[in-house]
Design a protein around this nucleic acid. Structure first.
Length: 492
RNA sequence: CGGGAUGUGGCGCAGUUGGCUAGCGCACUACGUUAGGGACGUAGGGGUCGGGUGUUCGAGUCACCUCAUCCCGACCA
């Protein structure tokens, strides 16, 4: 159970500092809300990337890369899309600087104004569909199943580290299909890939389901998402998969010749997850001692701390640890021996806990002579003494146990903070305490909007795989009939 | 873009009603003692106070302007 202070803002910096630092920028810089990812933090992102990439390949996708700059006119081709992103675009207007004729430094050369301004991609649908147009002529060219790993820029009015930064890293999949059914299947397949990844690798229980119309991606017909609950009871959208219908195909005039000789617009999907997942990971599992990383994503899975007195002692114990390390490395574990002699063991314990390393081994002369190793788990903070013999296999098995335990803990937390709410009074009271509220909703945008205005709660999704929600009832707000419950929550 | 707050060594802060060589903790360097849960001693190095203008004999301190950051709103796959 989370301690009282967990997930309060003051604690975030403690957790974040291991992974990122705020960009240190020159004074007067217009760039704000960016982050610098430290090597240790990036290692987590790399792990996420490699697992996701593998899952994308297994579902038939290929990686590709498209331009960072998008001609401004492309963005306006799809009406809803441009409306959704216009307010947060960084725009390139010039291509050259010159020495300042009136003083020090450089200024923008007014002669170097671009014919057409370029938008720094906030998402790549438009530039990709402009390219797909040239790739697709016949039904034989379909489907196209591409993914891109890239950075994108969204000039948000207010940023939040990890959750909403001006520049972030992500992957975006963009697919083109001959039929509506095939595209819808793809959309669903990919949201399930995300859910699978969140659960198995991030140890993050997520709810899968469609968004309501008002929460949809700009230009999508349907948006499926995975929603997670953070330790403060707020919801976090962790990934989305969009069924785009023929909107982009029509906007970019992408038609294909059918087998029968006709001409049809293609059907599209797009889907993405970002470095926001790292924020989710942190806010879902961390405690007051720092990060808690699931073993599958931990850059260092085992840290070994020698307990010693004097240099010879250190050398001898370190050599002993090396033999253990070799055994564990052979089992595929990533291991670090912390043989620093300028900090004490207690300091090392605290530091590696802060960094979230799943298992710590400590060995002193006493243990060495007794043929024992002290094993400390990060998830439970328990310490046990284990025989040196067979320690590698023990730790390898412990990794699975920790992975599962972190998941179960997060799941139990979510279950404990999910409430079936049937009256408006109860709703207003409960929403203040956080959590997911499973409620009947009359299905209208008006009701959704009023609830948002009155309580700041939004419909996170219409769950399809996590809760039993199909039942007859009446809308928690309007009292009109409803056939299923949806998830209301305050969100990031 | 509105409301509030904050900018002083790498980090976190103090600095009274303006007053003389700008301090403290952490971190850093050297040496020594230490080492099973964030060690201690001694000796060091490092800041011109976000930027600008002004008031004054004198500005970290007062005034105005400006820039940046954080929080709350508005906004937001």
């Amino acid at each position: 159970m989370a301690k009282e202070v967990v997930n309060r803002e003051e604690n975030y910096s403690l957790w974040y500092n291991n992974l990122v630092t705020k960009a240190e920028l020159a004074e007067n810089s217009a760039v704000r809300g960016c982050m610098v990812i430290r090597p240790y933090g990036y290692a987590i992102w790399e792990k996420m990337q490699s697992y996701l990439d593998q899952m994308f390949k297994e579902t038939g996708h290929q990686n590709a890369y498209f331009p960072l700059f998008i001609p401004k006119s492309f963005l306006s081709r799809e009406a809803e899309h441009v409306e959704g992103f216009a307010k947060e675009c960084a725009v390139v207007t010039h291509h050259r600087l010159m020495t300042n004729p009136d003083g020090p430094g450089v200024v923008v050369d007014p002669e170097a104004k671009l014919e057409e301004e370029l938008v720094v991609r906030p998402t790549s649908e438009t530039i990709i569909w402009n390219t797909y147009k040239n790739w697709i002529k016949s039904y034989r060219d379909l489907p196209i199943l591409c993914n891109q790993w890239a950075n994108v820029v969204r000039w948000e009015m207010r940023t939040r580290l990890f959750l909403r930064t001006a520049e972030f890293l992500w992957q975006e999949g963009h697919t083109a299909h001959a039929t509506k059914e095939e595209a819808m299947e793809e959309c669903e397949r990919m949201v399930n890939v995300y859910a699978d990844f969140a659960r198995r690798y991030m140890a993050l229980p997520v709810v899968v389901g469609p968004k309501t119309a008002s929460e949809r991606f700009a230009g999508a017909i349907e948006t499926l998402c995975i929603e997670a609950m953070m330790q403060d009871g707020k919801a976090l959208q962790a990934g989305t998969s969009h069924f785009l219908g023929q909107n982009f195909a029509k906007a970019f005039d992408v038609q294909y010749a059918t087998k029968e000789g006709g001409l049809e617009y293609v059907w599209a999907t797009s889907w993405g997850v970002s470095t926001r997942l790292m924020g989710a990971l942190i806010m879902a599992h961390s405690d007051n001692n720092g990060l808690v990383l699931p073993p599958k994503l931990a850059p260092i899975q085992v840290v070994m701390v020698p307990i010693y007195k004097g240099a010879e002692d250190l050398a001898e114990i370190t050599a002993h640890l090396e033999t253990i390390k070799r055994e564990m490395t052979a089992l595929g574990l990533s291991v670090k021996i912390d043989d620093r002699d300028n900090v004490r063991s207690g300091f090392k314990f605290a530091e590696w806990e802060l960094k979230g390393v799943p298992v710590r081994l400590a060995v002193g002369r006493r243990d060495m002579e007794a043929g024992m190793v002290e094993v400390a788990r990060r998830d439970t903070l328990e310490k046990t003494s284990v025989a040196r013999e067979g320690i590698a296999a023990y730790v390898a098995a412990l990794m699975d146990e920790i992975q599962e335990n972190i998941y179960q803990k997060a799941l139990a937390f979510r279950e404990a903070h999910t409430y079936r709410v049937d009256t408006w009074e109860e709703f207003k009271e409960q929403i203040e305490k956080g959590g997911f509220l499973l409620c009947h909703w009359d299905g209208t945008a008006e009701t959704e909007e009023r609830i948002k205005e009155e309580t700041k709660a939004t419909i996170r999704c219409i769950p399809t795989d996590s809760f039993v929600v199909e039942e007859e009832g009446t809308c928690v707000y309007s009292g009109k009939p409803s056939h299923r419950r949806v998830i209301f929550a305050r969100s990031y």
